[in-house]
Design a protein around this nucleic acid. Structure first.
Lengths: 372, 372
DNA sequence: GAAGTTTGTTCACCTCATGAATCTTTCTCC
DNA sequence: GGAGAAAGATTCATGAGGTGAACAAACTTC
């Protein structure tokens, strides 16, 4: 989109913080009002911004709120798993306008890239997306556009973004899945407008993305938010790495399924079935989910004590278990929050199966706007 | 000092990253070489910078490294405890050039402020310091220059910085003690030049300061780095807040003293005596410090997993215990570091009793330079 | 309808970084 | 030892991008 730094700041402010008058944006960004006239004019002319009817009944010249026109531009986001691929098309406001789901046949790089291109082409829409974002689990070097290591695809040092650009003819960006989701939550999700927050995802694994002063925490060698093996209790269940009572062993859905199967002696029980049993008051299932809630509360409290976020957002494929284990969660959060502070605000972001891909699309959007 | 943003960036780069040529500074700050000529000229003329003999033996015009002249300006730093006050004078390079220690007679605000002014006046030096920094434990609102709450002084909402300015006639800044020390470690200590690191202090209490991308993490309501009550083991010793096996109970020097007195049945044993027993191989004392090392390793691993710092610096009055519990510390750090990462680099910053006050002086220095 | 208030615009101006050109001072190669 | 290469430092015209004052616009309040 090629925006000047000031124009970018104005556009992002309007995108994330909703319709705002020029005067209000000037105050927030500590700019003089005159510069807003200048910066918004071309954006209005090109249709990226539109004027809205303003509030009435206040003294002074009525303000004219400016709003980003979401339909003005589209983005594609693709999330890779070991067996399939989710693709979505979103507008400028991060809203999903189309979705596609394709199985992956094998993990050979060329085949997967072909599938990605296919999925992007299948997404209905008037114009081609302005950029494509791709996300997957595991360490990713965004700067080098390189998949460092993907355990479930068996990849090492794959320059995926370049290959996707070659296959689609579109600018492509690569990002770790949790970080991509964090970006979406930051701008358009439960943490919209918050400067400092943490996202905790619960599902096949545990993930954590941290945003400090509106900047995503990357960490040395691209590693941060590793909460999977946080020690909860030296006597708890054993995780795949042999740790007793670590966070994964209590919380990850495969661990919960495993524990429930063993405890209930039902070898084919699914996670959802176990959750249902707990909902209906089965004491064994209840206990398992209560302990999961305790672990989650402890994790959130640890993050909150250390970082001091404004809010902690919960998401992930298994986040709906929160309603079942809420009491235990709140108790553990309160108990482990530092005594001088109030427990951190917690928000549950309902999870749709397109969420991961939407995160990737938001990364594409941010890239297109030139946001680091 | 009233520097333009660019001049400030140049000066700080030279202050923190040692002597550098103009060309090198231009490259690091992504500025054109010409602007460096312009920006450094007044700083050289006023004696804040001096030219140094450069390296020989390389092709091209020899570079002229620029160095900050530390003696050009002085700062005062004051640390308050419940019973006494430590004051230091430092130069621009954060080096301590004088120190004073005064007992506090009572905790009445006016008396304490008078003592601070007295101590600052007592510090020998040619010119008065350019600014005074004051640090103390507990929540401090730096923006409002307000001590929110000081448990050991019995203060609430005391506008200390304003009072110190009134009493000394010097600009005064207020900061939490751990954060002040973090600032000193960041610019002139074991993390000098690192962009992302964590400081963990061990002493009467546990503290943690976090710097991300060269910016101090403040946290909502000014609260972050609360590691004191991190849960280590549900069966461990009990801390003053009634938590079993929390970090304080394992690591804070009063807890260690208490545990050692009870276990060895020596009611008047000091922390240093217990440490000495451990050094000499006493099995009871060894065990106590080994467990402290395990707790510390676990804390550092947790911070490293979450933040991904380049280095974790250990400091505080009791940091010398690290040498005694190093093996246990390293073992716990390795065990609790996420399996995909190498253990974080750990540096021990030797602690002098002037360190806290030096931190306060560095806060004054940063304030004087206009660094947030 | 006059006064007051706030928004939005225009315009002259000013700060500050850039980029090209140039000068300086060394090393390397022949 | 001289020519040329190399890198640092400087000068200067230029331009981007912001500010501040002045003013117009559009509404409320009295």
């Amino acid at each position: 989109m090629n925006l000047s730094p000031a124009a970018r700041a104005v556009f992002v402010e309007l995108l994330v913080h909703g319709p705002l008058s020029r005067a209000e944006v000037a105050r927030r960004l500590e700019l003089s009002p005159s510069v807003l006239t200048k910066l918004t004019r071309p954006l209005l002319a090109e249709g990226f911004l539109v004027e809205e009817p303003g509030p009435a009944g206040v003294p002074g010249r009525p303000s004219v709120p400016l709003r980003v026109e979401p339909a003005r531009r589209a983005y594609a986001g693709v999330k890779l798993t070991d067996s399939e691929l989710f693709a979505v098309r979103t507008d400028l406001g991060g809203a999903v306008t189309a979705e596609v789901r394709l199985p992956l046949e094998g993990h050979e790089v060329g085949r997967v890239v072909g599938r990605i291109a296919e999925a992007v082409a299948l997404l209905p829409g008037d114009e081609p997306p302005a950029a494509v974002g791709v996300s997957l689990a595991g360490p990713v070097s965004r700067a080098d556009a390189l998949v460092r290591h993907s355990p479930f695809l068996g990849w090492r040092e794959v320059p995926l973004a370049g290959l996707v650009t070659a296959a689609t003819g579109l600018p492509a960006v690569l990002e770790n899945d949790v970080r991509a989701l964090t970006a979406a939550v930051h701008w358009f999700g439960a943490a919209a407008g918050r400067g400092t927050f943490a996202l905790v995802t619960i599902g096949e694994g545990l993930g954590c993305g941290i945003v400090v002063d509106d900047r995503l925490l990357v960490g040395t060698a691209g590693v941060s938010g590793q909460i999977g093996h946080l020690a909860i209790d030296d006597r708890g269940p054993i995780c795949e790495r042999g740790h007793r009572g670590c966070a994964r062993a209590y919380l990850a859905s495969p661990s919960i399924r495993r524990t429930a199967r063993a405890a209930l002696d039902r070898p084919s029980l699914t996670f959802e079935q176990a959750l249902d049993l707990a909902r209906r008051g089965d004491p064994v299932a209840r206990r398992i989910f209560d302990e999961a809630g305790l672990a989650l509360g402890r994790i959130v409290a640890t993050i909150a004590n250390l970082i001091g976020p404004e809010v902690v957002v919960l998401s992930g494929e298994a986040v709906h278990m929160h309603e079942v284990c809420e009491a235990a969660f709140e108790a553990a959060l309160g108990e482990h929050t530092h005594w001088t502070s109030e427990p951190v605000e917690v928000r549950v972001q309902p999870f749709a199966f397109t969420e991961w891909a939407r995160g990737a699309a938001v990364v594409a959007l941010r890239h297109d706007l030139g946001v680091a």
